[in-house]
Design a protein around this nucleic acid. Structure first.
Lengths: 220, 220
DNA sequence: ATTTGTATCTTCGTATACAATTATACAAGT
DNA sequence: ACTTGTATAATTGTATACGAAGATACAAAT
């Protein structure tokens, strides 16, 4: 089965991943308020599953840092404040830069093909003015870089960051030049891969991350 | 109840944390081999608990990146290669440096007292030549810095790194000057806090992390 | 000999049942 | 009124039961 570069589906994921993603989205988009108790039974009714998968999802969300499990008392929502998001974007920036550095050094020919193909999709969707597809392919572009860094820890962590910030400011960040700007930023990154220029790659990624934070958080 | 600075116990942890820690230790110290299937029933017998807590522990270890859960096939050990450890130390270094930078800027008086107290414990245990206690207090020193960074994400992540690397090279890193060297490295960090010198703090932490990696991995 | 189909067994995913802990309500005492 | 003790209910932690998916073994067909 051919998977286009933006496809980040994971066929080996546990069956409750759907539940996990639903719960995470509902927490991050404000369906549950910070400090709110997440009663297992309530979640069972809401999502029509039994307690076992609910508990497993809560455990994973605890690692994400958006839920706190207190012994014998249950799970509570930990809200993401604006400061939390800003800090997280700063942390993400640091590792995205490192990922680019390692990826440029370690990328295989096959991965390079994949990156090029992904970038061409970005150009295509920019022409088509398809913001929805662009968001997906954007994620995919970064994923290819994570893979090319050949560092499992980095890959896992940056994917996790993407999950946590994906809803932040997602509705208010599009001005008229959004697609063109994003494409330009990624072109600079892609060019650094072509040139095998680590320093240029790091700089391009830093610019991209600063602009992303600006678009999402409204702060510099 | 007074908690001395090296005490990293967490009273709010889920009851299965004991199981989680046991399992993680047994995986990281080689009790289970990379690629090995972790059959739930086997783990139930081994640790004398039922499948529910076992499954929850496996989910958390998946987030740690040392176990892979494949749908309908089960959990498998993901080994930590030397390269994995080296990469992880590099990643940890990057965030430890950032933690120090933020911590020096954001530390409260109370946290500063705690840091000072912790450092004095380090001096004390160095005099006493107590390596066991020194390891604990060392962890505590870094934990205080994480807290002082006032960044939940960073704090959680660095704690997680500590859990993952704590057994690596733990038996072969002590030469005669071990305690003195570690103390010296931490003194430089502590001094940067006293002086509120962000740059010096970052440098001192970088040196400390490089030396730690050297001691643990045998590589520079 | 290799492959394919089928039967069986194992293991997982989920639901439910039971025990332990915590939260709540309310009465008695100060 | 306000605390304190106790009984009750609600909720969590753990164990177990059941259906479904995958692994395995082996016979039949090529």
């Amino acid at each position: 089965m051919y998977k286009f570069p933006g496809d980040v589906s994971n066929n080996n994921a546990p069956i409750s991943e759907t539940l996990l993603n639903k719960l995470r989205r509902d927490i991050l988009t404000g369906g549950f308020k910070p400090g709110q108790k997440l009663t297992e039974q309530d979640l069972c009714h809401r999502y029509q599953v039994s307690r076992t998968p609910v508990r497993e999802a809560l455990r994973q969300l605890e690692t994400d840092g958006i839920v706190e499990n207190i012994l014998n008392r249950g799970a509570f929502v930990i809200g993401m404040s604006d400061r939390d998001y800003e800090d997280m974007f700063e942390l993400r920036k640091i590792y995205e830069i490192q990922a680019v550095k390692w990826a440029i050094e370690r990328i295989t020919d096959e991965e390079m093909d994949k990156l090029e193909e992904t970038f061409e999709f970005m150009e295509f969707y920019t022409l088509r003015n398809d913001i929805e597809k662009m968001l997906t392919i954007n994620t995919g572009f970064h994923q290819v870089i994570y893979e090319a860094s050949h560092n499992r820890t980095l890959q896992t962590l940056l994917s996790s960051y993407q999950n946590l910030v994906k809803y932040k400011g997602a509705d208010s960040m599009y001005d008229d030049d959004y697609l063109q700007n994003v494409l330009k930023e990624h072109r600079a990154i892609f060019k650094a891969f072509v040139d095998k220029d680590v320093k240029a790659g790091a700089q391009a990624m830093e610019i991209h991350m600063n602009r992303t934070k600006e678009r999402r958080c409204g702060t510099v």
